[in-house]
Amino acid sequence: MADEDFEIFDARFNSRVKTSARLDHLFDDCRWAEGPAYFPAHRQLVWSDIPNNRMLRYDETSGGVSEFRNPSNFSNGHTVDRQGRLVSCEHGARRVSRTEPDGSITVIADRFEGKRLNSPNDVVVRSDGSIWFTDPTYGIDSDYEGHRADSEIGASLVFRVDPQSGEIRKVADDFTQPNGLAFSPDETKLYIADTGATHVPGHPRHIRVFDVGADGVSLGGGAEFCESTNGLFDGFRFDRDGYLWTSAGNGVHCYAPEGRLVGVILTPERVANVCFGGPRRNRLYICATTSLYAMTLPVIGARTF
C-alpha cells in the first residue's frame, strides 16, 4: 500500500492510519460481501455473501476461509452480543435471529404489530442488552438478495427489541431506506445511514445522528451528520476516539466526531460494511463487493457489545 492509496483531507487522518500499511486481500469469491462480525475468543470473522445465500468464516490464525452456514436465509448484517452469540439479519426469513452456543436458532423479531418485517438489514446490541435494527426493503425488492414480496408494514423503520420483555418498538420512522447503524462509543448517540437514493433520485445518501434518551429507549434529534461524497454509505463502525469509519463507493471514509471527512482508505471495489477485529481490535475488516479485505490501523475499535 502506498501513500497514493489514501486520500487525506485533514491532518488528523495521519494519526488514524499508517500510509505505509498494506491493504490485505483475504478472499475474493463473493457476489456481494456484507455484515462482518468478529469473535475475539475464536479469532474468527463471520460475514455474509448475500446473493449466494451463505455465510463465510475467516480464521485469523490460519488465513483459511470456510462456509459457516449454507443456506443462510440470505443473511445480511451481523453483530455479536455480550454473551458472544451471533445476532443476524435475515432477508429471506424477514427476521432477526440469534445463534445459540449449541447452534440452535432463536427468533428475536419477525413481526411488528402482527405484520411481517420487510427485510432486516443491519443490527447492533447496546450494553443493556437491547437489540436495535433497521428494516428497509432491499431483501423483498427482488429475488436477488431474498424473496420478492410486498411490504406488509408499508414503511421502512428502525426498531428496538427490549432485552427483558422482547417487545419490539418502533424508534424511528422518517427514513426512506434505513441501513447501517452504530452507537457512539459512550452510547449516548445512535447513528443511522439512509440510502434512499437507491430508490428515489435526490433522496438521502447520508448518516444521521440521534440522541439516546435517559430511558435508553427513545431517540431525539436526527440531524444530518455527514453526506456521502462518493456512492452511498452502508455499514459503519466507530473507533474508541469517536471517529466513524464507513463504507462508501471508493473505499472506507473516516469522519471526525464533528462530522468532517478527514480521509479515505481507497479500495479496488465498492465497500459495503466494515468492523474492527484482531487481538487488539485494530484490524479493520472490509467487505467490498466480491472480496474481504483488511488493514491494520494505529487506532483501536470501540467495543460493540
Rank of each mutant, 00 (worst) to 15 (best):
I168A: 09
I168W: 03
R169P: 11
K170A: 10
K170C: 13
K170G: 09
K170D: 05
V171K: 02
V171Q: 01
A172L: 01
A172P: 05
A172S: 07
D173G: 06
D174F: 00
F175C: 04
F175G: 02
F175V: 02
T176I: 13
T176V: 14
Q177A: 12
Q177W: 12
Q177G: 12
P178H: 00
N179I: 05
G180E: 00
A182N: 03
S184D: 09
S184H: 06
S184I: 04
P185Y: 06
P185N: 05
D186F: 11
D186T: 06
E187L: 09
K189N: 10
K189S: 09
K189G: 07
L190D: 00
L190I: 00
L190K: 00
I192E: 00
I192M: 00
I192P: 03
A193E: 06
A193T: 10
A193I: 08
D194C: 07
A197Q: 15
A197P: 15
A197C: 15
T198H: 14
T198M: 15
H199W: 15
V200W: 13
P201G: 07
G202F: 05
H203I: 11
P204H: 05
R205G: 12
R205W: 11
R205L: 12
H206W: 14
I207H: 11
I207Q: 10
I207V: 13
R208L: 01
R208W: 01
V209M: 03
F210C: 04
D211V: 04
D211T: 07
D211N: 06
D211A: 09
V212G: 03
V212Q: 00
V212C: 03
G213E: 04
G213D: 02
D215H: 05
D215L: 04
D215G: 06
D215C: 05
D215F: 02
G216F: 07
G216R: 07
V217N: 11
V217E: 13
S218W: 07
S218M: 07
L219D: 00
G220Y: 10
G220I: 10
G220N: 12
G221H: 05
G222R: 00
G222C: 00
A223W: 11
A223F: 10
A223E: 13
E224V: 08
E224F: 05
E224L: 09
E224H: 10
C226G: 04
E227V: 12
E227I: 13
E227R: 14
E227W: 12
E227T: 14
S228K: 12
S228Q: 13
T229G: 15
T229D: 14
T229V: 14
N230A: 14
G231T: 08
F233W: 11
F233D: 06
D234A: 09
G235M: 05
F236D: 01
F236P: 02
F236A: 00
F238Q: 03
F238H: 05
F238Y: 05
D239S: 04
R240G: 07
R240Q: 11
D241Y: 10
G242R: 02
G242W: 06
Y243F: 09
Y243E: 06
Y243T: 05
L244D: 08
W245C: 12
W245R: 12
